[in-house]
Design a protein around this nucleic acid. Structure first.
Lengths: 225, 225
DNA sequence: CACGATTTGTACGTATGTATG
DNA sequence: ACATACATACGTACAAATCGT
């Protein structure tokens, strides 16, 4: 019967896996407050002690936090994301940027080859928003549109693994540099979008190199201050 | 005094960190059998329960396994490595290869810019071994030399973060394709090493693209069989 | 084949700190 | 300021699994 299966995967591991799936699938999004332990343990059909153990495991892996007297909350949706973030914390910003560069260049090149028509439209529209925000000197909405633009490009590469890695690294970069980012030159962005529109992967890659170089200069000059 | 510090990092987390460090630093290498829990808990100055919880956390993150009635063994040296491996398991081989391609191209380009003289010598010597093995049709030592060659190139990029990501991804690729790899054309390898020797990063990148394309063809033809 | 030594797994009990209301 | 509830840490005892003799 199930005896061997049960012995192969302990009850705690099963519960951990279930909760992990709920978080990864987005049903329990970041910020979500988990049901109280007694209720949740009943729903999952396990004792409260077993559930508590599973929760501790997930806390250790960095997906959730427990606040005594309050509740437990989802703080991250991906174990890989947490692992990358922790590794990035012991690297310099320039090292991280080099990795991001490699990921971004490749996603851009692949997007140029694979983007669909509707994806192209999304990319174009984000570029427009981006340029408008830059013109209006609205830093906040610029950053937002900029991230959306790059994400839509990464999505057009049609490689979910790539997308995930790119997002995790990018998220960390944005976190660590905060808002010290400037409204830099928009020409490379246009160039990139144009290259993707023309399905020219080589041009797309070189456009990425161009604005990464711009970006690097800004970082370096900001660091010297 | 220490009161605030103690509240900031729980005992379990401290112990987890200590063991993690021992493993990461190589003092407890893969395959090592940990001291029995009673002994280890005494050495670390914590109760067995506390130690056990730390061990559970490390088990969950995939660094160690516990075998009832036997002992606890180290099975991996890097949490990031485990996280990447687990994520890669739910990706297709072609998706993974695209990521590896991006990482490898960039490390090659950076190596061309940054390699020292002694690093260049190492790279050259591995290439020689590689070519000899190919000539002798010795698949096993070819694979070994090939991996050493690429690793030495990645090391010459002088970016430890890049090196680590590259190694984890590559390791998984080699694991999943096993020995279905063939002794493919050596010309791109020579080209790559030559480009690094000349400190020509553009040529190095295109050389990588070239043999990755070769590799892709082999994979595809093998998959069709 | 079986026994005993070793080692991890589980359970319960207690004391102390700590956050919430 | 107090009380309740929860988290943390420790100790102890016993159960279950494994390995070698």
């Amino acid at each position: 019967m199930d005896v061997k299966k049960t012995s192969r995967l302990s009850l705690v591991e099963q519960v951990t896996g279930q909760i992990n799936e709920l978080i990864k699938s987005g049903q329990w999004a970041v910020g979500y407050r988990l049901p109280p332990e007694p209720l949740l343990s009943e729903e999952l059909g396990v004792s409260r002690n077993t559930l508590r153990e599973a929760i501790r495991a997930l806390v250790h892996s960095g997906l959730i936090v427990t606040k005594p007297g309050d509740g437990t909350y989802v703080i991250s949706s991906s174990v890989l994301g947490v692992a990358i973030k922790r590794r990035l914390e012991e690297s310099t910003l320039l090292e991280t940027l080099e990795v991001r560069n490699a990921l971004e260049r490749e996603t851009a090149a692949l997007a140029a080859l694979r983007r669909t028509k509707s994806e192209m439209q999304r990319i174009q529209s984000y570029l427009t928003v981006c340029e408008k925000a830059a013109k209006a000197n609205d830093l906040e909405s610029y950053v937002e549109a900029d991230m959306a633009l790059h994400k839509s490009i990464a999505e057009a590469a049609h490689n979910p693994l790539f997308l995930e890695l790119y997002e995790h690294v990018t998220e960390y970069v944005h976190m660590s540099i905060g808002n010290m980012i400037a409204l830099y030159e928009q020409l490379p962005h246009r160039k990139l979008v144009q290259a993707i529109h023309e399905k020219n992967s080589i041009l797309a890659a070189s456009a990425v190199d161009e604005y990464i170089e711009e970006f690097r200069k800004i970082i370096k000059s900001t660091m010297e201050e």
